[in-house]
Each structure stands twice: as structure tokens, then as C-alpha cells.
Amino acid sequence: MTSTEDVPAHRYEFVESLRDFARRECGTREQRRALSDDDRITHSAELFGKLADLGWIGCAIPEAYGGGGGSTSDACHLVEEMAYGKAPLFGLGVSLVSATVVQRFGTEAQKQDILGGVCRGEVLATAISEPGAGSDAGSMNCRAERRGRKFVVNGQKTWISCAHIASRILVLCRTDGTGDKHAGITMLDIPVGTPGLEIRPIATMGGDEVNDVYLTDVEVDEDRVIGTEGGAWHQIMRCLNADRLMCGAVFLGHARRAFDDALDYIREREQFDRPIGSFQALRHRIADLATEVECCRLLVRDAARKLDRDPDRQVPREASMIKLKVTETAKRIAIEGMQMMGGAGYTLEHDMQRHLRQSIISTVYAGTSEIQREIIGRSYGL
């Protein structure tokens, strides 16, 4: 599903350039295995650097900070096409989501420093979850105690995407525990390498994606507060909404690619003297999956265009619908794609097993499908 029919004329060349880049740099299974060390590495610094050199990482970051001055739609097309091309660039979407918070709440100096770094190819991560604070993010206990013009941070963060490859981490911590649990939370920009900051990778079936982050007497200057001290809860919400939209764009790319891989296989594979895709059981399955992909595409495009028109607009309902629908669809396509491909889908020779490993967790991180349904239901006053 590589049609550009729904791509506006002014973005057509950009999308085509993205597809050409992906075909050239990681268009073969051999290239992808080399870049990812046989699917163990989810982010290629080499490939990320090439994107930075082309000016594409910062496509939606204002020109004043080294970006391209583009829109949310541009960023969505970027991550979608890199996902479709199977480029090992896990840090791309994570960095862009984190950058939206700095762009909205950071000082001018922070924007020049942090956003400029992202445009140059530095990975930016955000640390929210803790061992006792996952879906209930307001229950976080990582503490930052003010001492003069510094904060001293102690605590643990977990499931932190890309912390091991990041240059800096935006850490959410509690600076005041006397009020409501959603108050007294502050976002701190902490460079990786700061004394007392320790990152330990968590082994997963998806490769090197997430980490535990330990903070022991980590000293942070007060000028590294992003936004308002004690008022970061609404920043978290903006981060999560951006994360869900970006996650939707990423897994729209994965869903499209898994669909195309399955379709190519059943067109070519013959049994009983005919392509297996000609049998009604598979032909109807393809029809259902194709329709689901188109629904996902429309959801992502619509929300991105709303934000293009009004970048400050909040779209919590739409973001949760996207996260729910697209990730569940990507998982379904990978599972059904493996079924249609039979034993071939289970082998390392084909990418379907990788589609499955990537999509199976997508309905959990960035807010589980169950949490998305709660958010959507409550948005209707229920």
C-alpha cells in the first residue's frame, strides 16, 4: 500500500524522497540485517545521521532552531515511511515526540540547545513510567529536592524508550508531594552522563528498546526545568497525546508493510495449481485487512491535519482512537499475515516474524488499548 493519492501535492515530492531513501538504504533484507545486527539493534546511528544530514529529522521543527519549519503531517509522513521501509530508527519517533514538549514549553535557550541537537541527529528521550506508576502516571515517586539553585534527583524510571542511545532525557519527577497527585510534578532536562544517572537495558523479544533509569543524588541546575516547576502534568498530557499520534503514524507504516508483504507472498505462492491468494478464504481476509488499513490511514491523516491548522489544539480523543485502532490493526495484520504465509512467515528469511514482534507490544506501550478505551469512553461523559 504505497499509493500517494491522499498526499497533498506540496508533500508529494517529500514522501517520494522518503520512500526512495528507504529503498536505497534498507530496501533489502540483507541491508536491514546488517544495520540492525540481525534485528537485535532497533536504532541505527548511521542511518539516523544520514536523515539528519538531509534535514529530515527536524522537518517539523521551526527553522529558527535548525529545522525545516514543516507541519505535524510532515512528521507523520516521515515516521510512517521509515516504518514502512523497515528502517531501524526506533529513536526517530521518540525524539520527535519529546521535541514537541520542548518546542511548546521550553525557554528560547532550551529550544536552541535541545531542538537544535535533535535536528543534528541527537536522540531525545522522555522518562515518565516508574515501577509503581505505569498507566497511573500521577503516582510517580521519583523525587527532585530543591537545594538553592539546583535540584537533587533520586528515584527509578522504567520502560524508558531509547534512554540507552539518548543524549539527554526529559525526566518527570515530583518536586512537591503535599497536594493533589497531579500537582507538584516537574520536568527536568538531564544530559546522559550526568553523575548519578545510570541506564540499564531491559531485555525484550523486540530487541534493545527500553531501559531502567536509576537516579542517585543527580544534581540538576534550575535552568534545566522545562516549563513550570511543579506544573508539568499538562505537559505530560501533551507529550502523551503527541506520542499516541506519532505511534499511530509509525504503526500505520508497519501495518501497510506487513499487509504488502503478506499480499506479495500469497500472490506468488502456489498450491493446487493456483496462487493461494485466489482462494476465497484468503481473498476475503485481504479485503478485510485492506479496509482496516484505510480506516487507520484516515484517522492519522485527519488528526495531523487538525494540528496543522492549529498546533496548540489538544486532540486527546482522536489521539487515543488512533493509538487504539492502528496498533490493534497492525498486530492483527502481523498475526494473520503469518497465518497466511504458513511456516515461511515464522522464518528469519522473511520479515513477518519481525512485524509480529514489533506490533505485539504496540498495544501496551504509550498507553494500553484498555486505557485508550477508557479515555475515549470518558470523553463522551461516561
Rank of each mutant, 00 (worst) to 15 (best):
G58W: 01
G49M: 11
G117E: 08
P62H: 04
A125P: 00
G106W: 04
A87G: 02
F48A: 08
S44R: 04
L115H: 04
E80V: 02
S36H: 03
K50N: 10
G121H: 09
R23G: 00
T42L: 12
R32F: 03
A34Q: 12
Q112P: 01
A83T: 12
A87H: 04
Y84R: 14
L124P: 00
L35Y: 05
T28N: 06
A87V: 07
T100R: 14
A125N: 06
S36R: 02
A99K: 02
D38T: 07
L47I: 12
E130H: 05
L18P: 14
A125L: 05
T28C: 02
G67E: 07
E122R: 15
S36T: 08
D53A: 15
L115I: 11
A109W: 03
A87M: 15
L89P: 02
R29A: 15
W56N: 05
T42E: 08
G117N: 11
R40P: 00
K111D: 01
S129Q: 14
C76H: 05
K111L: 06
T72S: 10
A60N: 11
L124N: 07
C119N: 10
G49Y: 02
F21Y: 15
V123M: 07
C26T: 12
E130L: 03
A127N: 08
R40Y: 04
G49S: 14
D53I: 00
D39Q: 05
T107H: 07
A87K: 09
L18E: 06
G27S: 10
G58N: 11
C59W: 02
R24V: 03
D37E: 14
T107A: 11
P62C: 02
T126S: 15
T72A: 11
Y65R: 08
R40D: 09
K50W: 00
A52K: 08
E30P: 03
G66S: 07
G117Y: 13
H43D: 10
L78M: 10
E80A: 14
D39F: 15
T42H: 04
T28K: 08
T100M: 09
D113F: 02
L92E: 09
L78S: 11
I128A: 13
G106K: 07
E122V: 10
G116K: 11
